[in-house]
Every structure is written in C-alpha cells, then in structure tokens.
Design a binder for these strands. Sequence first.
DNA 1: TATTGTTATACTCTATAACTATA
DNA 2: TATAGTTATAGAGTATAACAATA
Lengths: 166, 166
Amino acid sequence: MPAVRTVQQQRSERSKTLDMSYLESTVGFAIRRAQMAVFADIFRAFEGTGITIVQFSVLATVADNPGLSQADLALALSVERPRMVPIIDALEQRGLAIRIPSQADARFRDIALTAKGQKVLRELKQRFAKHQTKLLKKLDVASADETLAILWRLADGRSRDKFHAN
Amino acid sequence: MPAVRTVQQQRSERSKTLDMSYLESTVGFAIRRAQMAVFADIFRAFEGTGITIVQFSVLATVADNPGLSQADLALALSVERPRMVPIIDALEQRGLAIRIPSQADARFRDIALTAKGQKVLRELKQRFAKHQTKLLKKLDVASADETLAILWRLADGRSRDKFHAN
DNA sequence: TATTGTTATACTCTATAACTATA
DNA sequence: TATAGTTATAGAGTATAACAATA
C-alpha cells in the first residue's frame, strides 16, 4: 500500500493548492468518501476468502432468517430481485447455501445455509469484527452507537427509493 | 412517491418478521443505506435540471479553482481520469464549461466555467442548500458539524484506495 | 390476475491498458 | 521517458421489461 497523500500533495505542480471547502462541507460528498473508505476496508478484510460484501450480507441474513425467499432477501438488502440470482448461484456452487423448493408454495425457494456455509460465516464474522473494531478506533470522540444512530437517521425512511447515483 | 414501508411490512405474508439486527449494527450496512438516502435526495433536488451529481461536483470545484486540469478534477473527486472525458463533454455541450488548451503546456486543458455555467451553478447550489437543510433536520441530536466530523473521520486516509464494491 | 424466480437488455460506473500529443 | 487527455474494453451494478411456473 502506498503512503497516503492528500489531494493537494498529489496535484500537479502547475498550481499548489486546491480549494475543496464547498464540497467538503456537504454531507453528500463526505458520506461518499466515508463509504468508499469503509467498503475498501471490508474488501481488504475479506481478501483471500473469495466472498464478496453482498455475498456476506446474504449469508448473515440467511443465518438469522433460515428459509427466507430470494425476494425477501433482495428487499432486505436493497438489491434488485434479478441480481439475487447470480449471487445465490455463486453461494450454491461453493456449497455455502442451498435453494429448497418450498413445500407450501412452489413459486418460492427457501434459502438456507449448509453446514459449510455456517462455518464460513463464523470465520467471516470474525474478520468483519476486526474490521469494525479498527474502524471505530478512528472515532475516538463519537461512540459507535452515536455513529450508527446518525447514519440510520440519515437513512431513515428513504432506503427503498430508487435512484441513479448520477 | 409511495408511502414508506419498512422491510418487515413489505415482506411477503409467509413469515411476519425478519431479523436484520446483525447487519443493522454494522457501520458498513448503515453507511450504505445512508448514502443511498442522501444521494436519492440530491437526485430529487436536481430533478428537471438535467444535471447529475458528478456534474454538479465538477461545476462547484471548477468555480473555486478555475483553470484546473481534468486530471486534477478526477483526483479531487475520486473519479477515474477516463471518466472525466464524457463528464466534461456534457458540460461543454450544454455551454456550462469550456476546455482551454493551456498556454504553458499543450498537454493540459484548463477547465473553466462559462457565464451560463456560473449562473446555473448558483441555481443548483440553492437547490442543494435546501436539500442539506432538510437532511440536517433529521439529525436533531447531532449537529451538522458533528455529523461531518464523524464522516470525515471514517473517510480519513483511505479516500485514494481503489477497490471494488463487492 | 398476481407473484417468484429467471432471463434479457440497456445504461452507468469501475478499472485498466493503450494510444496521441506533447514535454 | 513521462504525463494529460483520450479511446477502448471488460467487469460489476442498476433499472426495467418480460417470460414460465405457480397461485
């Protein structure tokens, strides 16, 4: 990993300073940067496992809600239903989850973890816990609860909206 | 806009509850939801203008740093250099910005706003201010400064890393 | 008629490599 | 040789529409 340099330091020699004060005072710009940093950190935490962040989210959700449907998963994770198909495919191919045709209603597949899936999830959760501990060390003033409270207050009531990032 | 419903309320009738307590306690999941909500709100604020969020960021940055290069812009906004091309193209085609071949070094194009670009930016900033005011109303406990401080602490030192979101 | 899972399609974004023109 | 802007390409993600099976 290269040493971290600021935008100003990396900027070409033509001019020395860059005034980003306007955007840096906006929640939108700050939250984008924060999300990039947090996801990059999770990405590193899962390095070598071959498990992506969405796949981890699916595993964790299925563990606490065995037998839920793909549509429910998509809704819970704010992902479009069609995208769940290749995600579950990958988990099934690696032997971590299975689709069980529902007895009660043949349109549904009940998603469940295999024993291997449960074992892998435990390992991933340990990695994730280390990541989050490291992350919260950055927040020496604000507590973890306070941080989550602010984030959820920002997210409140809007998580189901559709939009295009630009 | 449809009435907002929770995941639980929207979930199919097969089972009534969904336990999302694990993911909801993570910064990663919360920040993703928060970012989706914030960006959806900005998206709505710019509705009808034909201006995207990245384009707005470019306009705002160029306004405070006239004559900066596309590479500097890409760096400042955490966007890959190749992506700047169509973004600046669009602004140029709408008459909001111009590329001025640099006198000192012909490899550079100094990006500047047109008079129209400055006028449009003023209008966009007004819309943006309304959005942010509305947003900060959700945060009755935490102050705006506190929120920004937490977000920038999360983002700190990692904004230049490359990663893939999953 | 409505819904689940699925396929298909178009568009955006990310990431990289490579080209051109300049230096 | 190195860099800015550009082109090209591959891989993910987003957003819709539509289809088969089932209810």
